[in-house]
């Protein structure tokens, strides 16, 4: 099969490459770009470990062909760190509230939480649970994941208020 030229922006960086159209976005990110934050969990669009942000929407990158993402802007968990490399607010709150146990689901959880809080900066606990329903934690550590997202929302809102 002939390869197709793809050009996308990943974590603010322009990247280009040749890929078979059938290559999945998750494989392009991990194998071609070495961005291994997004994980391959179930590989059947159930678990959400491969979640990335694509043009402002959370998507499961195991169920998107890289050809579909041609021209798109992608953010992975790596792109949510502060510019100096320190943990971003959501990442820091996951650390603080022990929002991870084995850590496998964490990149997907944090990336999804980022989009959820962009759309709904002040969610109720119920809205957080509904909003992360596409991400599974097999350690079942949901309590602290939800706490971490609620704490991140509070801190982001406080920072926004302080800036205004």
């Amino acid at each position: 099969m002939s390869k197709t030229h793809v050009k996308l922006k990943v974590n603010g960086r322009e990247v280009e490459g040749l890929a078979e159209p059938r290559m999945l976005l998750i494989h392009f990110l991990r194998e071609e770009l070495g961005i291994t934050g997004p994980h391959i969990g179930c590989e059947t669009s159930h678990c959400g470990a491969c979640t990335v942000d694509m043009d402002g929407r959370s998507v499961k990158s195991c169920t998107v062909f890289v050809a579909q993402a041609n021209g798109a802007e992608i953010t992975t968990v790596e792109g949510l760190a502060n510019p100096d490399g320190s943990l971003g607010v959501i990442q820091e709150k996951f650390r603080e509230h022990h929002g991870l146990q084995c850590g496998f689901c964490t990149p997907g959880m944090i990336t999804r939480a980022h989009r959820l809080l962009q759309e709904n900066p002040n969610p109720t606990e119920e809205e957080v649970r509904f909003g992360i329903a596409g991400n599974l934690c097999r350690c079942t550590g949901y309590q602290n994941i939800v706490k971490a997202i609620m704490a991140a929302a509070a801190e982001l809102n406080a920072a926004k208020e302080a800036a205004e």
């Binding site: 669009s45 959400g48 979640t51 929407r57 959370s58 998507v59 499961k60 169920t63 998107v64 999804r112 959820l116 909003g131 992360i132 329903a133 596409g134």
Partner: peptide
């Protein structure tokens, strides 16, 4: 229907 990620697509 499904979950948030699936509903975006």
């Amino acid at each position: 229907i499904a979950d948030p990620q699936v509903r975006y697509k």
